[in-house]
Design a protein around this nucleic acid. Structure first.
Lengths: 186, 186, 186, 186
DNA sequence: TATGAATGAGATTTCATTCAT
DNA sequence: AATGAATGAAATCTCATTCAT
């Protein structure tokens, strides 16, 4: 991928995290990326398309980080722990990405159709969940409840950490992972 | 409070829930509220002030709904259940308010200073939590963890219900309340 | 109609006649009309809508000038002469309107649907033509041929007069009116 | 002439006929012609120069078609008929060229100086007209009147044919040729 | 209180043209 | 002779806010 495209995405991420979608103009992005305003439209069709591309990018990277530590025959509990730690890690180490994702997810940009595009990137996680259901480890509950007690909790927690409302040390990580495991399993 | 002020807040709520902050202009609000564009500035200093006023309004109303069912000498578990049910109810019955609050909370409008203003409206809940800590019922954890396993979980769940990703029936409500109680208590 | 709306239409007419659609920017129009750029969008939805409104305006005014001299029981030949003289007069006395109409008619703005909107303004002329057909004065020919040998010829002639390619004096007017009458009648 | 130059002119013709000057960008032309945007500037100095070159091209081709059927000693009436038929043919068979010429002729591109450049291409027609004047066949009238009752009428008629407003069959062609001959001759 | 015309800055986007390769 | 990324000015249009009435 071209250097310039990357610089544009990078500048967008930082600026939106700080100023929001509304507060981030295309000329601000151009200036921060060190490119001309016009060239952004060579790489992205519109401001909206740029935002969507950036969201996709982040989701994909997060998916890769999760998959990276996966083994097919991992014990369920280890898999769950790895997923939670990766989420917590990503969301705390990358506050800009996290802020962007949160804004995006609660904006009119977000559509179910878009979300479906990342299925491949999270396939191993899905496989893990299906294995857990099959082995009768999980309480019977809708799939989205599992999302809540993994990704959503991790995101919320990391945001509060970044905001300085709590300190996400190892003890708290363990506490949350344990709490969520207890919440999900029989 | 004047009828017009109320109409403006109402129109703003609906429009922002549908189109986002960015997609909601003052003239759209004026038209939807059936008032002139100029008069909005009689009731609110600026667009930002209007948004902040609306957020305060919603938070206050939510606080009142929670307090309404409170008794000082309520058993802890009953108090917890009431709080959870009220959150779940409010967030599912009022999807516009919920969407607005979520967008607001993840936007540059939000400041810790602002959040502190609602302390009074949630005082009885705080008292309940302090009683629980004092009685040694809760696991030792930062205060914000308690927020996560009550308000934040309820909000996330209600959003998924509104989005049609799951159905929040009584069984699921009980399941979540139980899971969160288990997560928080020793 | 408001003064400002009129000033905008007036400025647009002059500028487009001189510089063409492409060469006439909204800010040029605003400056020439002595208004701010934004207010144009209070009166017209878009640049296109402004151009279409101006075209309609001119067509309507031309229609009124023609109708003004009409009597229902006019001899056909007098009616024809009046129509031709009015066209020639309008197109020579109003070179800006003429240049604008010509550009508009040969641009993508023009649609059959739009043209149909002026039927009412030219109804008496249509009635005259129908009377001529009914009385068997005209050669059998498509309606548009009649347009060619009246309006279109007059426009072309006036343009050449304005361009200095010929001088449209009374003698030439009579010659053309006679030539067109001969072309159309049996 | 190079293939690429030809492809560029061809693409420009089609696009301008459909979208107008304003609606036709250099990159649209490049894509339609299957060349890079930059190379257009190797063949033409600017967008304006390209448009002018295309106009010249069309006028020259039309001139050639007319001359092709000419004999110096042709009877006047046959010459006139040939000229009219060629105009009608060209303008109906080549609607893109016709639309382009019309737009161009009514745009700021057009200058008398430019028009004078085609004198050579239409020299035999001019000779025919001079012969007609010399032989006393024509009514005394300005030269441009002759243009109106030949080229301009043919163009207008063909445009209406292309627009579906009338059908230009042999009968109508003969009617028009006769009408114009009558209009011009004593 | 209330209107809505008016402002003017600024937003997104387009596009003719250039230039390193 | 050819590419297409890059520029930067300018275009259209929006919008929070003001103000005469």
């Amino acid at each position: 991928m071209s250097d310039k495209r990357h610089a544009i995405l990078d500048a967008t991420l930082t600026l939106v995290a700080q100023h929001g979608f509304h507060g981030t103009s295309m000329s601000m992005i151009a200036k921060a990326a060190g490119v001309s305003a016009g060239i952004i439209y060579h790489y992205f069709d519109s401001k909206d398309a740029l935002m969507i591309a950036l969201y996709s990018d982040i989701k994909r990277r997060l998916g890769h980080e999760i998959i990276a530590g996966f083994a097919d025959d991992m014990p369920l509990r280890d898999g769950f722990r790895w997923v939670m730690l990766t989420f917590l890690d990503f969301y705390t180490r990358r506050p800009h990405e996290t802020a962007f994702v949160e804004q995006f997810a609660n904006s009119p940009y977000m559509t179910p159709h878009l979300e479906a595009e990342f299925a491949d990137d999270y396939a191993p996680v899905m496989a893990l969940i299906e294995r857990a259901i099959h082995e009768g480890v999980l309480k019977p509950m809708p799939f989205e409840m599992i999302v809540i007690f993994t990704s959503d909790i991790a995101l919320t927690l990391a945001k509060k950490h970044t905001a300085g409302l709590l300190v996400l040390n190892d003890a708290l990580k363990n506490l949350v992972i344990r709490a969520c495991w207890d919440a999900l399993t029989i």
